[in-house]
Amino acid sequence: MPSKPPIISLKSVHKYFGTYHALRNINLDVEEGQKIVVCGPSGSGKSTMIRCVNGLEQHDEGDITVNGHMMTTDEKTGNLIRQEVGMVFQSFNLFPHMKVIENLMMAQRMVRKKTKAEARDTGMKLLERVGISAQADKFPGQLSGGQQQRVAIARALCMNPKVMLFDEPTSALDPEMISEVLEVMTELAREGMTMICVTHEMGFARSVADRIVFMDEGEIVEAGEPETFFANPEHNRTRKFLDQIISH
């Protein structure tokens, strides 16, 4: 069987903020349908890495390829990639002045050039899928955090992305709302979506991830399947980190 090229590929990627070396020689291949969980201490470069994948940050060295397109500084290329990559943020980032359904329709109309009816239709289907179709005509500010994050996931899915990026999607949520968001993500994973999730929800990682990537000080320290990663971490730094988050 001819193996397909990875849908996301980072090769020797470096990123600097001024003189600060935020990403050091990142290498990561993600096959279609794979779920990658990224963890690591604060400031280790997790967000920076996934933001480089869709060009919200520009990397300085190395190659990033997404769905066959090589990321360049060119606005057009970045845009082409972002149209195929969904992203969910820690702080939801819903457009506050638009109703929930309008949040879901905007990019479909602007980017996919769908008609109002088509966009609304897709939007309602996805709201149903994340279990909040009753809130379609409310403003984001009227929803709970968990509901808002589910809207954000639905908004990204409306674009029918090939890949979904999650940057700590549950970190801003009250504990009782975390599970409703994780359920949606688990469901999405089961349907075969390619995902990179930055999260410290280790239960989710254990049950969903094909691979867990541990980052520290801008490097990928180690990466492995959940069983080996949790049972026998190779590096001391990984062990220390796991001890810390599990004891919490």
Partner: peptide, 27 residues
């Protein structure tokens, strides 16, 4: 304007021009 909103619009694939008209200006 909340920078996160602009990033969210960009991440959805809107061009810089679309982000300006549909998000920055209304906000």
């Amino acid at each position: 304007i909340d920078k996160g909103l602009v990033e969210a619009a960009k991440a959805l694939g809107l061009t810089r021009f679309q982000v300006f008209w549909r998000l920055r200006l209304p906000m």
